[in-house]
């Protein structure tokens, strides 16, 4: 563990401490900061509702994306883990192929699928199901679809890895003991795959909460996340002190989520030790 601790200390903790110092500076003009020990940025963050709305929006969207990713991702992971298909590695590899096409390109290409002249509307219009194209792009729906598409592989792989570790004799054993398939799944497979599900969910949650590009490309004017405010502060307004303040807040909030996660994971281990 020491290499990990050292690298993270050097490359995350130290830089972030430098950033923390910046949060007390005062920004005078674009790109011009004055060293100071001022709580101006922090008090703006705590008193201005603009930031609170963004935090709430981000939390809400992250929960939605995480839940949907878990629902969508669990079954394919179960399928990969239990299939008798010989080339299991191929199924796994297929999952990461979308990454070969750069994230920006993939995100931009949704317009060809969900746009007014996109594939879905084309088919529906042709079938006569609708008379007017459905507006699927540039709203929250599109943002969620975009997020799920990017993060689902993380969920599936995490769940798969846990499922693959489940002892293959357990389910048949439960069945001989009179469990229905559903009961066997609920009592045996699901609890054993929870660590993977939890890890996947944590990743998806945290990644969604820190994003800013997907809402910029797929969303309408109302779709933005906390990450967009950070981007605005640092790269558009060139206001490092405010950007530092906002980033630190995100770090602390997400850090709390992770602590919560490891507490629950720890309980899980206990449960297993006794069970």
């Amino acid at each position: 563990m020491s290499p990990a601790l050292v690298t993270i200390t050097l490359l995350v903790v130290v830089p972030m401490s430098l950033i923390l110092i910046y949060s007390f500076y005062i920004n005078i003009d674009l790109g011009v900061d004055r060293p100071a020990f001022s709580f101006e940025n922090w008090s703006e963050l705590f008193t201005d509702n603009y930031y609170h709305v963004a935090i709430w929006k981000t939390f809400r969207l992250s929960v939605i994306v995480t839940v949907l990713a878990a629902l969508l991702g669990y079954i394919p992971a179960y399928f990969i883990a239990n299939t008798t298909y010989k080339h299991k590695w191929l199924l796994l590899l297929l999952l990461i192929l979308p990454f070969w096409v750069s994230f920006i390109i993939r995100t931009l290409s949704w317009i060809h699928i969900m746009g007014n002249q996109g594939a879905i509307n084309g088919v529906l219009l042709w079938l006569g199901v609708i008379d007017e194209p459905l507006q699927m792009m540039f709203n929250e729906f599109a943002v969620i679809v975009g997020f799920i598409h990017v993060f689902l592989p993380y969920m599936i792989l995490n769940v798969y890895v846990s499922l693959e570790g489940v002892d293959r004799n357990l389910v048949p054993a439960a069945r001989t003991l009179g469990c229905s398939p559903w009961q066997a799944f609920r009592e045996v497979t699901l609890p054993l795959s929870l660590p993977g599900l939890a890890a996947g969910s944590l990743l998806v949650f945290v990644l969604t909460a820190g994003s800013y590009v997907t809402p910029l490309i797929l969303g309408g004017p109302n779709d933005f996340l906390y990450g967009n405010l950070i981007y605005d502060a640092i790269l558009s307004e060139l206001n490092w002190p405010m950007g530092a303040t906002l980033s630190f807040t995100l770090l602390v909030l997400l850090g709390l989520v992770v602590v919560l996660y490891s507490r629950i994971m720890g309980m899980n281990q206990l449960y297993k030790a006794f069970g």
């Binding site: 002249q117 996109g118 507006q135 792009m137 910029l216 490309i217 309408g220």
Partner: peptide, 20 residues
């Protein structure tokens, strides 16, 4: 009144060309 703010020329072209 708008459906979207675009951020890059590539997006601008897509939006206009696809009649979004």
């Amino acid at each position: 009144l708008i459906v979207k703010y675009w951020e890059s020329g590539a997006e601008l072209m897509d939006l206009l060309a696809k009649e979004e």
